[in-house]
Deep mutational scan, measured.
Amino acid sequence: EVTIKANLIFANGSTQTAEFKGTFEKATSEAYAYADTLKKDNGEYTVDVADKGYTLNIKFAG
């Protein structure tokens, strides 16, 4: 089991951190699915992958 950390960075400057656990593939998939649910209210997003994929910096356009 691994932990994927998602740093969520919103257009208004606020930030939030979420963690997803499971296999690497499952946790990564859940992180992207979570970002997709936030897209409606926060706009499109870009992802900067860090720490060999264990950290995702997800920035929303607003």
Rank of each mutant, 00 (worst) to 15 (best):
N12H: 10
T28S: 10
T55Q: 09
Y34H: 09
E44P: 12
F60P: 00
T23I: 11
K40Y: 09
V2H: 10
K40L: 12
N57T: 13
V49Y: 12
T3Q: 11
Y32I: 14
A6F: 02
G22V: 00
T55H: 05
Y45C: 03
N12L: 06
G43V: 02
K40Q: 12
L56A: 01
D48H: 10
A11E: 10
Y32F: 14
E19N: 12
T28V: 11
A33Y: 08
K40W: 08
L8R: 01
T28E: 06
E25L: 05
Y34E: 02
S14N: 10
V49D: 04
K21I: 14
A11D: 13
G53V: 02
E30S: 09
E30Y: 09
I9A: 08
A27M: 02
A31Q: 01
E19G: 08
L56H: 03
N57H: 10
T55C: 04
Y45V: 02
A6D: 01
A31V: 11
A31M: 05
K5V: 13
F24E: 04
A50K: 11
L8Y: 11
L56D: 00
T3E: 06
K59R: 14
D51K: 04
A33N: 10
L38C: 05
A31G: 03
A61H: 15
E19S: 12
T55S: 08
V49H: 08
D36P: 00
D48Q: 08
N42Q: 09
T37W: 11
Y34T: 04
K59V: 11
K21M: 12
F20T: 01
T46A: 09
Y32A: 03
S29T: 13
T23L: 08
D41C: 06
N42W: 15
D51M: 05
F60W: 05
G13N: 10
D41P: 05
T23A: 11
Q16G: 10
F20Y: 09
T37N: 13
D36E: 15
T15I: 14
F24K: 07
K5C: 05
E19K: 09
E30G: 07
N7T: 13
I58D: 00
L38I: 09
K5S: 09
T17R: 11
E1P: 06
I4Y: 01
L38N: 03
G22C: 02
A11G: 11
F10G: 02
V47Q: 02
L38W: 10
K21D: 07
T23N: 12
K5D: 03
Q16S: 11
T37H: 11
Y54F: 14
A31H: 02
A11C: 05
F60H: 01
A27H: 00
